[in-house]
Design a protein around this nucleic acid. Sequence first.
DNA 1: TCCTACCTCGTTAGCGCTAACATGCATGTC
DNA 2: GACATGCATGTTAGCGCTAACGAGGTAGGA
Lengths: 328, 328
Amino acid sequence: MADVGQLAGVSHQTVSRVINGSPNVRPETRERVIAAMRELDYRPNSLARALVTGRSKMLGVISFDTTLYGPASTLLGIERAAHDANNFIIVASLEAMTEASVTHAIERLRLHGVDGIVVIAPFDGAANALLDVSSEVPVVAVEAGPQDGVPVVCVDQFEAARLATGHLLELGHETVWHLAGPHDFLEARERVAGWRATLKEAGAAVHEPLMGDWSARSGYELGQRLAREPALTALFVANDQMSLGVLRALHEAGRRVPDEVSVVGFDDIPESPYFMPPLTTIRQDFDEMGSRGVRLLLEMVESGEVLPGASPVAPELIVRASTAPPAR
Amino acid sequence: MADVGQLAGVSHQTVSRVINGSPNVRPETRERVIAAMRELDYRPNSLARALVTGRSKMLGVISFDTTLYGPASTLLGIERAAHDANNFIIVASLEAMTEASVTHAIERLRLHGVDGIVVIAPFDGAANALLDVSSEVPVVAVEAGPQDGVPVVCVDQFEAARLATGHLLELGHETVWHLAGPHDFLEARERVAGWRATLKEAGAAVHEPLMGDWSARSGYELGQRLAREPALTALFVANDQMSLGVLRALHEAGRRVPDEVSVVGFDDIPESPYFMPPLTTIRQDFDEMGSRGVRLLLEMVESGEVLPGASPVAPELIVRASTAPPAR
DNA sequence: TCCTACCTCGTTAGCGCTAACATGCATGTC
DNA sequence: GACATGCATGTTAGCGCTAACGAGGTAGGA
């Protein structure tokens, strides 16, 4: 920086002013400095700047399994939004889904001087860990259920489950069975709640939901159980991967979809239109969630206050070929 | 840091020594310092440390579409390896698959002071961009084809294609058709080359490969074309998502898999065992690639030299139910 | 003409840390 | 007992940058 100043015949401070777009620099001087920077191939050291300003322009992201479609998409949305705001993302993946693991990840991120943290970790342990630190560093939770103290950006899971269940009921099914996600996921529980409430309102029978682990494998295994239920005509599955397994189990058991059994999935992964049959499912706008999360976090960093979470992102029902009126 | 020193009755430098595990500190003093750090809830500022040591302990990752299974898994492997080495990952996603976009991403990462860069961007433009900067900052390419000047960690795509094609040939098929990935992906081209070479060696007819875009949709659309080929009995598809689309197109056209047509996919995504039928495919160890990449990069950062790339990771054929001998 | 105001630029200090050298003290050697 | 050796610690400088203040010059008003 001093070299640039020397070449341009000004002090290093003037160079700094040019870099930071200060208005009090003569245009002529500014151009000389810019020319000098170019000539010396100078790049500002953002670490040094961060040290003195206290802003690193880095946002931490804590995520559970970035191989899953949901977190991966959200991460992408976060990255995009951060990029637009000229910030960077530094990622900490969780090895385990425990409170200690979250706390540790937060600690590591803080050590590296992030301005704020976005957490994509929709399970119970995370919530407590967040509360502990939310007063010391700005934190936003994404894809989590509503909780106190930490602002949340999420899709309305309850409403989404209502959409899925309602769709099946409207088609004329007497009731809807449910293959849920792991119950330590807030989202999974919200979906169960929405499904249950919708059935109750309609006066339909509530069969205890089965619980999978989001994987196609668990969908397949539990699907085999479900296929043996003669009364099953409509099924709401908590994600598309499990739906794939269910579809296969049903097929093997000779129960045709949608003629005998209707299936609704969740997430609308890019592959779901090519399942057999194409899957009716609920779309969540992960990208939108990610960018809302970042914008909210940035506002908090700016203002230094804890802001209330955004209103939930609306889910959308995508009707394809895996649902139909019940056979009579 | 000065405060900690004061509380422990030592200088800030001794505190620094304790933090960095210097051997020349009396155990008694060390403990006093540690107690003081705990009492004051002191955390070292790694930005300041980075400024003075010139090592930020941050690695940049440039990736194309982290929603795809391959890049997402690799990213996870990278994260894990970086974490084990007590480093952090900062991610830059590419908006476009162009050389300019890669150059820009590298520039941004360098500005933020990363020690080195891992690139998951297996397309042509990336290669050139990397060459330009590889002398200024350590760079490792992952999932790219072999190329000069930049160390590469990859799965042997040629061998993988040979595995897939050979498997079908051994089953007794006269020849194997190929649904390839976009030809600006190095990997896709390597797979075509391996497939072609295997056919030639066996003296089998070579039908010009079709080209998809990795998506299930393109697999479906091109699968409809392929389904109309009466001579088709064996097909090698360049990834599992496209295979899903193909399977559906074949099913709709009434061509049964594997009785009439055998299909081999690529990647072994977690869902592929639950396709209809379960997909025979090639497994790539993304996790291993990611961690090899990081280890290599870290060695380069340490030594300051450009190291040769690692030997390719071996692919593995996973035989499931989508392949069988041809009907006679 | 002198004073004030403003704009442009330079100087100094310090962000939190580590590297390099300096200091003081106990130990061992002849 | 004089001197080198090694260890535990303190002191100083500086990484690259920005904040805060200060200095010099130009323009406008009394």
